[in-house]
Design a protein around this nucleic acid. Sequence first.
DNA 1: TATCTATGTTTGACTACCCTAACAAATAAC
DNA 2: GTTATTTGTTAGGGTAGTCAAACATAGATA
Lengths: 234, 234
Amino acid sequence: MLSFTEENYLKALHNISEAEGVDLVGTNRLAAALQVKPATANDMLKKLKEKSYVAYEKYGKIKLTDAGAQYAVAIIRKHRLWETFLYQKLEFSWDEVHEVAEQLEHIQSEKLIDKLDKFLAYPAFDPHGDPIPNQKGAIKVRFKTTLLDVAAGASCRMVAVKDNSKLFLQYVANLGLGLNAIIKVVAKQDYDASTQIEVAGKQTSVSEKFASNIFVICNTCKVGQPCPGLRCQV
Amino acid sequence: MLSFTEENYLKALHNISEAEGVDLVGTNRLAAALQVKPATANDMLKKLKEKSYVAYEKYGKIKLTDAGAQYAVAIIRKHRLWETFLYQKLEFSWDEVHEVAEQLEHIQSEKLIDKLDKFLAYPAFDPHGDPIPNQKGAIKVRFKTTLLDVAAGASCRMVAVKDNSKLFLQYVANLGLGLNAIIKVVAKQDYDASTQIEVAGKQTSVSEKFASNIFVICNTCKVGQPCPGLRCQV
DNA sequence: TATCTATGTTTGACTACCCTAACAAATAAC
DNA sequence: GTTATTTGTTAGGGTAGTCAAACATAGATA
């Protein structure tokens, strides 16, 4: 049974590997993610290596062991189930769920999380569109790409966000966007890489950064099938 | 915002004062309740005194300040609401809820607990019959006495337990007892102070210790009204 | 009252987690 | 291929919470 802090290190390692590639995780990057100094992260890495949750050589890159990855996925499962609970049952908005789930994810009780899963009717995705691992740690993979990949004239459906920060989520909601929103790409500007979109009849322009954080599938896409229009199958 | 540990000290102080009288709380008693050594408890008491949550003189007895009592009640509110959630929504048995609630009670989010309260339809009592403080810390007091006070021949209704330990709760459940069970006192033995009871047509004998941990009201008792038969109004 | 026992307090030490500052290795720039 | 920069590591130190052991006080016993 790991401490609250140790769990956060494992989760951060998992998140960074997933978002930025397994071979890019270093002490500094990890420390930044956890808002601690590199020296601190280094100490903890030694401890987690000692406990066989991470594998790394001095001055080398950091990887989770199988045990470490398994532990991390279990925490992510808890996090996303709690987010779903807060959103679906307790009327939290999608930008509020994250910080409370950061606390709830550390509660130790197998039974609790499995019963919660059942209570929520085994949801596959959390309020941000992220997949919820099942009891065994298996994740339902969904073909998706970002709004950047959608060609002008095409239309797509929003299925997730990449950035879970309050600021971004509130911005997204203010534009009338949300999961399953239908987005039509009106035009793309080569000048600043911005994208003109139309949502529920209203047009807006969004930046490249914004578009890169919106995950979409094309309108005709079905889960498990390669998509003809976009490159959803990538 | 207090730490996890500090919160546990406040809660323990509150529980002991309530169960054993305000003027009986000493360093040793507190340390025993928290399963730490007196030296440790003493250190923490200094810290909590510094922060004005407890008031005590050297070698004197320990009391919570108003702020301390308020904080403690807020934790108890959270604990009991979580217990109710686990019991009512997640199919936990009444002997399982306590240990998970011990963790959940430390989650920091006003909104979470108030929404949970709403979700549970503002319950007044937890699965053990203990009253749940409302948002302002007010507790609904209920006239009750213990099974020891019920005279032979009389009948009563169980409304709470004093002991929340797994062992006791499982024992109670195994006898077919539970909240709102109707208990008829068949006889009382002067020899060993045991009590013969009848529950749902079945007779058993319970010890003095057992009977002292079962809270009851008489069958005709209504909340808010003094009871004619038993000494419920005490 | 004098002593014995309970209870409460202080001291010094340990672990977990964090820091700053100094240093070492790897990588990039020239 | 040497230097400069980035990245990672070590050393030493701080706080929170814990302990054992020594000590002090209060209350009970004789």
